[in-house]
Design a protein around this nucleic acid. Structure first.
Length: 323
DNA sequence: ACCACCACCTGAGTGC
DNA sequence: TGCACTCAGGTGGTGG
């Protein structure tokens, strides 16, 4: 489930199960799920087993689970997760082994039932067909702006000053904040974007400029803002970039409300259920269908070894650059 | 420093 | 049925 709304659906689904939970057992089924981990599988297992998870945090398409330090003065660490193109995290107990199960993490939740008995242990199953996703144990560094590193859901209110809030895993520190982050700096984004000579879609997809946007939501946002993907970012009026950012926010928020975009069983929440935003897509995958705004047929075009979808009338191609 | 491209994988679908 | 080829929602490293 790869772009921001899909990852947030997973984060929110995991949060109640993992916040305060203790890791009982870890099994690495396939080492390729550890490509971001600096060390062998045994090291991953050793550093995670027995630890307590503080929360579930997300920035852009990265998720991480800060681990409570074992000793005062220890460098803060987190379990980092990226779903890649085809990753899922499923919650359950004794579920049927998924075909592409890569890692299994058995946790003891912090909560108790009404009569005080501890909750049943739960398994987090990391499933990933294409193995572009991965998990890792990584050290954390302070955020450069001193603001909370990402979205942590209900924990934001409960524990706003926890030490892990203002730390970010080292391998996520180069990722820009996402547009739904309260600490996102609109003016900074607009200024950065307008320094780029490449097409505006490349800029939207550059996670170092703005995070969380992938091919679906880039196309949807550009359609909403009536901009062609190849408009040189440096030549866009400031107001247009602000307008585009507003459309990005609107698209991401609506997709999140619908539980994300699911084209098949690969993009599901922690209970294996699909989201419904695919029914509201204006252009992505809609080639041959009428533009919801003007009725013109949507076209699909090659772009960056992928494809772009647009309305030829609402989003006309830019004039060739003169030299 | 930017920018464009390529590699990393598996599986589903298409055309011959 | 089989084979070759294309495509899929991402990221990082590499050269220019």
């Amino acid at each position: 489930m790869p772009e921001l709304p899909e990852v947030e659906v997973v984060r929110a689904g995991l949060e109640p199960a993992v916040s305060g939970a203790r890791v009982r057992h870890v099994e690495v089924v396939d080492d390729r799920a550890l490509t971001r981990h600096d060390g062998p599988a045994e090291d991953f297992v050793e550093r995670l087993t027995g630890r307590t998870i503080a929360a579930a945090v997300r920035r852009g398409k990265f998720m991480w689970f800060p681990l409570v330090p074992e000793r005062v003065g220890d460098r803060p660490e987190a379990l980092v997760t990226h779903l890649g193109m085809s990753g899922q995290v499923l919650l359950g107990r004794g579920r049927e082994v998924a075909k592409h199960r890569r890692i299994l993490i058995d946790v003891q939740p912090a909560g108790t039932d009404r009569d005080g008995t501890p909750e049943e242990p739960v398994e987090l199953e990391f499933v990933d067909q294409r193995t572009f996703g991965s998990m890792a144990i990584d050290t954390m560094v302070p955020t450069v702006d001193g603001a909370p590193a990402g979205s942590a859901g209900a924990v934001d209110e409960r524990d706003p000053d926890a030490a892990w809030r203002r730390s970010i895993p080292t391998q996520v520190s180069h990722i820009a904040r996402d547009p739904l982050d309260p600490a996102f700096d609109d003016d900074r984004f607009v200024a950065m974007a307008r320094k780029r000579s490449s097409g505006i879609k490349r800029v939207l997809l550059d996670q170092g400029v703005v995070s969380g946007i992938g091919n679906i939501y880039a196309d949807e946002s550009l359609w909403a803002a009536k901009l062609h993907f190849d408009r040189p970012a440096e030549r866009l009026p400031r107001a247009d970039v602000h307008r585009l950012l507003a459309e990005v926010r609107s698209v991401l928020a609506r997709a999140l409300e619908d539980g994300g975009t699911s084209f098949d069983a690969q993009y599901v929440n922690v209970n294996g259920q699909s989201g419904y935003f695919s029914q509201r897509l204006a252009v992505y995958g809609q080639q041959g269908q009428p533009c919801p705004r003007c009725g013109t047929e949507i076209v699909r075009e090659a772009f960056m070894n992928r494809s772009s979808h647009r309305c030829p009338v609402c989003q006309p191609a830019p004039r060739q650059r003169r030299r």
